[in-house]
Computed example of a mutant assay.
Amino acid sequence: MELLHLRYFVAVAQELNFSTAARKLHMAASPLSRRIKDLENELGHRLFDRDTHHVRLTPAGGALLPIARGVLDEVDSIRWRLDETARPRRTTVLLGIPGGIHPDLRERIDALAERVRDRFEIKRWPGASERLVEAVCDGRLTLTLARLPVGGDPALEQLPVMSERLGAVVPGDRFAERESVSLAELTDLAYAGSPAAATTAYFRGLDQQLSDFGIKKRIRLSSVTFDGVSEIVSSGLAFSVSMLDPRSPMQNYRLENVAVLPFSDFDPRLDTGLLWRKDRADGGDLEEVVAVAREVFAEPLQI
């Protein structure tokens, strides 16, 4: 008995019509009928009652059908079972995600996750950039996105992934119908920096740059969120700096009487990088993920 005999038998048993079963098997009805007779002779049982109008399973045929299906299912599953056995187990990769990540960057991260999905499952972990970088250093996170610059830890390697242009977050009524704003027009306003929980080395450096450009007043916001900064700006007391692209999630914090305008005499940009420990990438457990990341982010996003 060959497996083909069982496949032929199951096809006829499902259709109860030799011509229809033959078409599905891509063969003629006569050779199919002969194969069924060969199987009946080998088993010593008639499997079908046939006349000019009907085909019916005999009791022996009815008993054989679930057996034949079970055998074929087992045989058909051999390939995927071997594939599952040979395929390495998926490793979970914890990826740090700072707040306000641009949707285009999220798409790139999704592309990275799809490229490595057979070997790795990428799960996202939120946090402030500096804390996320610390977690990569001590092994609590596998890799992370972070706002640059970060501390110059020699154990870390970084890949630039995005550069975003920043604009001035200003009172809307004062700068109505304006297409840009200069730093000189903001010197009478206080600068309201990022909330303490989201402050990065970049924004600390930006604070100093603004001071050098003549922006001397400050409103320190140690315990409010981004919408709190928007409230201060909306009231006309201050301005802030944030992502210029209207698709940025940071734009969701903008209230009425708040506008985000490009600077006419200043071009601040916030860069984001992907960071990991060198020892985990150079012949380590992240070598494959990092290699794919270098391909996905071969050209950093410019927003």
Rank of each mutant, 00 (worst) to 15 (best):
Arg7Ser: 15
Tyr8Lys: 14
Gln14Val: 10
Glu15Cys: 07
Glu15Trp: 06
Asn17Gln: 09
Ser19Trp: 03
Ala28Trp: 05
Ser30Met: 12
Arg34Asp: 12
Arg34Pro: 02
Asn41Met: 08
His45Asn: 11
Leu47Asn: 11
His54Pro: 01
Ala60His: 12
Ala68Glu: 07
Gly70Arg: 11
Asp76Val: 08
Ala86Ile: 08
Arg89Lys: 10
Arg90His: 00
Arg90Tyr: 00
Thr91Phe: 03
Val93Met: 06
Ile97Pro: 01
Gly99Leu: 01
Arg106Pro: 00
Glu107Lys: 08
Arg108His: 09
Asp110Met: 04
Leu112Pro: 02
Arg117Glu: 15
Asp118Arg: 12
Arg119Phe: 09
Glu121Gln: 12
Gly139Phe: 06
Leu143Tyr: 07
Asp153Ala: 04
Leu159Thr: 09
Val161Gly: 05
Arg165Met: 03
Leu166Thr: 03
Gly172His: 06
Asp173Glu: 14
Ala176Glu: 15
Ala176Leu: 13
Glu177Ile: 02
Glu185Asn: 07
Asp188Tyr: 00
Ala190Gly: 11
Gly193Arg: 06
Pro195Leu: 04
Ala196Cys: 01
Thr199Pro: 00
Ala201Gln: 10
Tyr202Thr: 01
Asp207Phe: 05
Ile219Pro: 09
Val224Lys: 08
Thr225Pro: 00
Asp227Tyr: 07
Gly228Pro: 07
Ser230Phe: 01
Val233Ile: 10
Leu237His: 14
Ala238Thr: 07
Phe239Val: 08
Asp245Trp: 11
Pro246Phe: 02
Ser248Leu: 01
Tyr253Phe: 15
Arg254Ile: 13
Ala259Asn: 08
Phe263Leu: 14
Asp265Thr: 09
Asp265Leu: 08
Arg269Cys: 05
Arg269Val: 04
Leu275Val: 05
Lys278Asn: 07
Ala281Ser: 11
Gly283Ser: 04
Val289Glu: 01
Val292Glu: 10
Val292Pro: 13
Ala293Thr: 06
Ala293Met: 02
Leu301Ser: 05
